[in-house]
Design a protein around this nucleic acid. Structure first.
Lengths: 232, 232
DNA sequence: GTCTATAGTAAGATAGAC
DNA sequence: GTCTATCTTACTATAGAC
């Protein structure tokens, strides 16, 4: 993917701060501040609702600096998305691999996804918001990277199913379900807080119980673990 | 809940169109046009990204009419939300009732939720967007109506669990999972389209297979139906 | 009730001093 | 590289003719 942040290279040779702490240090500090602030503001207001002024305030920098580093609101948004997408696929490569058992792989993947959505709730919300808006900014990611990623995972699932470690269910839709359930603990937190009576955000026990519930459904429903007892 | 649309009553006696097809007919026609257009625009752009001009265009009406009927963008948004929330709770009262079996109730509820999310995908996206933004506009719905609704459903689940028709899992989190999975077929459609290689929207078979997958996980994972065969 | 024209304001973006 | 001041546009909202 190519993003406006690529123009970082354009300034070589005219960075006066390069002598005070390493090459492009102030730039890295400022862009980092801006990206973090932008993630917070885009997460709570959406792309349309966010303003450069609000992001500048959150970053404790003048508005002009945002344009200096990122060019436009649109470009800043793309840079934030880029940051998010680069970590979105990581967990699967660790857990959904043929060397693991179905149970171990699915459990590890779900726990990793839950942890990601909890620690990067704002990133999760930006990703969700982009999807709600049609995903136009991340079409390449969805059509190329994500699709290849899923194709690879499917071969592992096929292996597990052939080995009798999983029921023959649609592994594409299984993934959609896992993503939906884990993401909802970031994206739909207000709903959960109301239902659970939490006035100060979800608590550790909520994430834990949520994770166990998701594991019950996925592992039990996919046949990766036997459901204890007789129910009907 | 009280919303600006309540001022519909304020105009009694000064509606010149009352004589051409019933009381307030033009008003009902215009407000209906506006609400439908607003749902489309708010769904694809979010509250902040939507503009009154875009909604007016979609409704084929001048911008001023929107303000005449709804007062402000904020009030129009609340009216749209009100419209959505009034139908969100309906399915549970039909399906999650003690007179049904766990299997029948859960299956009917999930199928109904899938149908709602498919037929009212834009409404689903607005609801999701509102949640991403923190849910400030629907706090009363979440804290009062939804919470009471869940409390009632929990008594039915407790009944099913006591009867040995379901495993003793967290029924609150079970609901979160069901909502997350069914909603994602509206909210995350772009992601699914990319993975499934659909260039022209999700197809009927996708919703059907998604529904079966969710049913497998929920019914199998909750113990409401036995998982056929031996897997491990 | 409907619509055009416009007021008033807020937002994205830039110029230019330092 | 940083920041203040400002340009320009686009938006919400309203006034007032019809």
């Amino acid at each position: 993917m190519t993003f406006p942040t690529d123009r970082i290279g354009d300034t070589s040779g005219r960075d006066p701060a390069a002598s005070s702490g390493g090459p492009g240090l102030p730039r890295r500090i400022s862009t980092g501040q801006i990206l973090r602030a932008a993630e917070t503001v885009f997460a709570s207001s959406g792309f349309g609702g966010a303003t450069m002024a609000a992001i500048a305030d959150a970053a404790s920098l003048p508005k002009a600096n945002l344009h200096y580093y990122f060019g436009s609101k649109e470009a800043l948004y793309r840079a934030v998305l880029e940051d998010i997408l680069s970590t979105w696929l990581a967990d699967a490569d660790v857990w959904i691999v043929a060397e693991r058992t179905a149970r171990e792989g699915l459990e590890g993947y779900i726990r990793a996804k839950m942890a990601w959505n909890r620690s990067r709730a704002e990133a999760s919300r930006i990703f969700a918001g982009e999807m709600l808006a049609g995903g136009a900014h991340i079409k390449h990611f969805l059509n190329v990277e994500l699709r290849a990623h899923v194709t690879r995972m499917e071969t592992v699932f096929a292996h597990w199913i052939a080995a009798g470690a999983m029921r023959p269910i649609s592994t594409q839709h299984l993934l959609f379900c896992i993503w939906a359930m884990t993401q909802s603990y970031a994206d739909f937190a207000p709903q959960m807080e109301s239902v659970l009576g939490r006035t100060d955000g979800l608590e550790a026990v909520d994430y834990a119980l949520g994770c166990e519930t998701i594991l019950s459904l996925v592992l039990g429903g996919s046949g990766a673990v036997a459901v204890a007892g007789t129910y009907r």
